[in-house]
Structure formats: C-alpha cells, structure tokens
Nucleic acid binder design. Structure first.
Lengths: 147, 147
DNA sequence: TATTGTTATACTCTATAACTATA
DNA sequence: TATAGTTATAGAGTATAACAATA
C-alpha cells in the first residue's frame, strides 16, 4: 500500500498532512511548555520576545488576536517574573514588554525539550532538510497573511 | 532539485518554520470555520467524523484531550444539528457520534474556503508538491505520537 | 479624531475529580 | 475492577464593547 512513488498527491491530502503536522507540532510545543509550568501561548509570547522588546499591540499582531487579550497574558507572565512592562520613551501610551533573563532561560528549556519534533527531523538527512526548508519557505508568505 | 541550496539550514530554523506554518494553517482553518458559525475545534470534530461514526472516547483520542471535554463539544454540535448521538448496539455504555447531512455540507464548505492555504499550495508545481508530500509523510509518524 | 492599553463580559476549550451505568 | 460518558469546577484564551490617557 505504501506507494514509493507519490505520483502527484491530491491537493487535499497535502493540505491535511500539513494540518496534521501543524497540530502535532503545536501539541509538542505546548506539552514542553506545560512541563515547565507554562501554557503554549505563554511560551509562544516568550519566543516572540526573544528578538527584542515588543509593545502590547505588537504582541497582539503576532498572536493574531484582539489587543484586549494581551493584558491578561502578559499579566500572568509578569507574575512569574518572565517578562516586565516598561514605558516607551517616545510614546507615553505605549508599554514595551521585555523578556527577563529568567524568561530567556525558560524558553530555551522549552525549545530544547521538544523531543518529538526533534526526533522527527532526525529522520531526514541534511540534504532533505534543505529541500524541505526551501519548499516550506515558499509556502510561508501567503499563509502568514491568512488572517 | 532546486538550484538554491540554503547551505544546510540550522535545525532550529526548520523547526520554527514548521511551527509558523502549522500555526498559520490552523488559523486559516479556524477563520474559515468562524465564517460559518463554528469554532476551529468544532470543525475539526466534523472533519474527523467524515470517515464514519466515532464513540465519544474515540473523539477524545483524536483531539488528544480529556474525555470530559467531548461532552460539551458534542452538545454544542448537536444543538446546531450537525451531529447526533446514537447508542451503540454492542455496548450499552458507548454512544456513537454520527455526522448529519447538514454537518457534512458544513465541513465541505469550511474546507473549500481555506483560501490562504489553497493559494499557498498553488505556488508549488506538481513535482514540488509531490516532493513536499513525500518529505512530510516521513515526518508524520513520530510527530503524531508526540503527546 | 485616532490609537494604546485596560476593564468588563460572555463563550469555548482545557484538565482534574467525582459520579453513574454499564462491562 | 475497569471502562464510557457525564457533571462540576476552575483556569486560560478569545472576541466584543466601552473607557481613559495620549497622540
């Protein structure tokens, strides 16, 4: 049954494979976060803050959710000492969310504990990983602006 | 073979690309569901029931969540006439969840309205889709048992 | 006037624990 | 004893609407 020649898989199959993989990937990430006392969303926020501070509004854009939700999410992260709010020097309406050193340690730990995803990638050799990366990169832009 | 080999992307980059894609894919699916008055989870249940009836417990396994959650989820779907509960003929403890014809129409509509994902796939030619499908298939098994 | 962040509200999804009716 | 489904509860994420402070 396992056809070694995929001979143009139906689009719908590729779509659902992508969906199944995405779901599993998120589950893996969330499970790793839970092991460290975080929710998947909280860990995702920490990951987004790794590149530098972001205003509340910027986080809402990245999570693709209403801005009102960010208040509570950042509250809970701040309670755990993983981020802190800082007033913007240029716009007194804005609060920048900064990841703390503790938050940085946390997201590193979560990332290194995504066992399932790591082991899955190990089934591909370097050249295959490069091919996959190239194809996924071309898929990314249109999907990113989906919402 | 793509001429542009990105010189062995770091594993972490491939990982995050996969995560970003999975997130976008789920967002696209959820948005399509919302346009039809469903949540992403409700639409996912309908998708799982497309292959035939499943007991409550079977749905819990597929959604990878506690069985107690399924009661409410199926309740809300039943209120909308998209599924119905049927007693199992062989085990009086079991209730099989059956998708209705209305439910079937609904999930078809949701699937055909995943605009972003469809347009993303269109950026790849048939051969590239086959290559991607083959690579993702090899990634699937270990990821599926992640939780 | 428009934007940033917040609050209040309501709904859905989630896990845990305890219960029932079956097996 | 074990399993299927339910109920009760509490926490988290989500959208909507309204508000104060600032631009």
């Amino acid at each position: 049954m396992s056809a070694s020649t995929p001979s143009a898989p139906a689009k719908i199959e590729l779509l659902e494979l992508l969906a199944a993989l995405g779901t599993a990937q998120w589950r893996d990430f969330s499970a790793a976060a839970t092991r460290h006392g975080l929710t998947g969303t909280q860990a995702k926020v920490l990951a987004h803050l790794g590149g530098g501070p972001l205003p509340m509004r910027g986080l809402a854009d990245r999570l693709v959710c209403d801005a009102s939700n960010i208040t509570g999410i950042v509250d809970r992260l701040e309670d755990q000492g993983l981020v802190r709010r800082e007033p913007s020097p240029t716009d007194r309406r804005v609060k920048n969310v900064v990841i703390t050193s503790l938050g940085r340690e946390m997201i590193v730990r979560v990332r290194t504990e995504m066992q399932a995803t790591h082991s899955a990638l190990d089934t591909l050799n370097v050249e295959e990983q490069a091919t996959l990366y190239a194809l996924l990169t071309r898929l990314r832009p249109p999907l990113e602006h989906s919402a």
